Simulated scan of single mutants.
Amino acid sequence: MKNSVDARLIAAFFLMIFGTSALAESRIAVLVFELKDLTLAPGIPEEQERTASIKPQLEAELTTLGNDIVETDFASQQQADAGTGYLFDHHDVAAKLGKQFGADYILVGRLHKPSFLFAYIMGHLIRVEDGKLIADYTFEAKGPNRFQTNKTVKTLAKAIDKDLKRLSQSH
């Protein structure tokens, strides 16, 4: 009886180690989120700071969930971007940028603020290999406070992680 318990523990250990590394095979690049502020006071410093905080927090959450984050540089993103919303709408161009960084997937994000009462944290997960939109995310963050933004970014990270794990299992 003891041998079968030991064997199961060893098997569980190997599954944990190799299973985790297998799930981290997909390399994801997260671009700096853009702010699309449609309010009567667009682009105030607080909104710019909130928008700038999304990428590092999202990368940290994705890393905690076991994903392999590819470093990107903002200068390359700016060079590929022909204007507000361009990379968000042109998956093929975003995919080329992801390829430049050696990523399997690239996330192009936006903080869309149609009102002072709420904003949407949005993301397009694009497969670099063929420029295909894999997932389109939209999560609402009520109010401008940092707590709501952080909570919404965590929700986005969990959704991305779920999709990346599903994709890695299908390969």
Rank of each mutant, 00 (worst) to 15 (best):
S4V: 10
A7I: 08
R8P: 02
L9A: 08
I10Q: 13
F14T: 06
L15D: 10
A22P: 01
L23K: 11
A24W: 00
R27K: 15
A29T: 10
L31N: 02
V32I: 08
E34A: 12
D37L: 00
L38A: 08
R50F: 00
S53H: 09
S53M: 12
K55G: 07
Q57G: 15
A60F: 03
A60K: 15
G66C: 00
I69L: 14
D73I: 02
S76L: 07
Q78C: 01
G83Y: 07
T84Y: 01
L87Y: 02
L87M: 04
D89E: 13
H90C: 03
H91F: 06
H91L: 02
A94T: 01
D104E: 09
Y105A: 07
L111G: 02
L111V: 09
K113E: 11
F118H: 15
G123Y: 06
I126F: 07
I126N: 03
G131E: 05
K132H: 05
I134W: 05
D136G: 00
D136H: 03
F139S: 06
E140M: 15
A141Q: 09
P144F: 02
P144I: 01
R146V: 10
F147C: 00
Q148Y: 12
Q148S: 14
Q148P: 03
N150M: 01
N150R: 11
V153E: 05
K154P: 02
I160F: 01
D161R: 02
K162N: 09
K165D: 12
R166A: 15
R166M: 10
R166N: 13
Q169S: 10
S170W: 01
